[in-house]
């Protein structure tokens, strides 16, 4: 679907993107993560045909984006990190305007706009002026706008930035729905945990280079020697600690009042085996999970300790 090879973008002596290569299969939600200034927006602008690459190629559906921008524009829907809206324009007129820019005939627009507004849950705002909408609504409207010509690839640059938690959840739901409709989505964020939940694949970019790529689990496994596991029994704490200490993959067991934590260096199967042993030994396990926050640690390690 999307194939980036040896992409380089230089501004004078500054290299914003440095021999970046990545591949996004069809139907996936690809998370593009990196700290501010890592080169995410530059890469996405090249993908969208808004910037020329100094070197390298971006192929979308087999089309070289840098050589055939017109064909590219039919296939991609782009949502920038910052965008504005026009004054004195109603939501339906806004959508109608962009439908016009893609050459969609007048008679086809009405139903199409209604469908898209329904997807982004803005049907009740269709007669409102665009500049009166909240930030979250504007983001959703911009997403609907990027879908107006039914593109196969969506490039979304930080769509969740500046949104409150509720609006973020709504945005995630919409993206999942779009994935189920067969869209391939490339989405960027400077916060890895935010993307981890919904992305099938993640690429971590730092100083213009791809530092790590793969599924979240793969990256975690590759980059963390130890995973921190949290376990809480309803009772039988002593028995649980004894069983855990016997396991060779369990290290650094820490006992708290009601729960315990340990570093685990092993496979998922081995971890499942430990849980099975605890249950078979009649330890009433209430919680047994990998501790959150590790993603951020991974991210910090990969990106050289820059703040997220």
């Amino acid at each position: 679907m999307l194939e980036i090879k040896d992409l380089v973008k230089r501004y004078g002596k500054f290299t914003a993107v440095d021999h970046l290569s990545l591949s996004v299969p069809e139907g996936t939600i690809y998370g593009f993560v990196g700290p501010n200034g890592a080169g995410k927006t530059t890469t996405m602008r090249i993908m969208a045909g808004l910037l020329t690459a100094t070197e390298g190629s971006v192929m979308i559906d087999g089309i070289d984006a840098t050589k055939n921008p017109k064909a590219l524009r039919e296939r991609i829907g782009y949502m920038p990190d910052f965008f504005g809206v026009y004054d004195n324009l109603k939501v339906t007129e806004y959508m109608d305007f962009y439908a016009g820019t893609y050459g969609i005939p007048y008679k086809e627009r009405g139903g199409m706009i209604d469908n898209l507004l329904e997807i982004v849950d803005l049907t009740h705002k269709k007669e409102f002026y665009v500049d009166s909408l909240s930030r979250g609504m504007k983001q959703r409207l911009c997403l609907a706008r990027s879908l107006i010509h039914d593109p196969s690839l969506l490039i979304l640059d930080e769509p969740a930035s500046g949104l409150d938690p509720r609006a973020r959840v709504e945005m995630k739901e919409i993206l999942k729905q779009l994935q189920s409709m067969g869209k391939t989505i490339v989405i960027s964020s400077h916060i890895l945990p935010e993307l981890a939940e919904m992305c099938t694949q993640v690429g971590i970019i730092d100083h213009g280079r791809l530092a790590a790529a793969g599924s979240v689990q793969e990256i975690m496994h590759r980059l963390t020697q130890k995973r921190v596991i949290y376990v809480r029994p309803a009772a039988e704490m002593e028995k649980m600690l004894r069983i855990l200490e016997e396991q060779p993959a369990v290290q650094g067991l820490v006992e708290n009042t009601l729960d315990a934590e340990f570093d685990f260096d092993g496979t998922d199967e081995e971890l499942a085996g430990i849980l099975k042993r605890l249950v078979l030994a009649d330890v009433p396990v209430v919680a047994f999970r990998e501790k959150e926050g590790n993603l951020e640690e991974v991210f910090m390690r990969v990106t050289g300790g820059e703040s997220v």
């Binding site: 808004l50 524009r73 910052f82 809206v85």
Partner: peptide, 13 residues
Amino acid sequence: ERQTLDLLLVTKM
């Protein structure tokens, strides 16, 4: 200035 130019440039116009 209004940050709408990019949205226009990515269209088929």
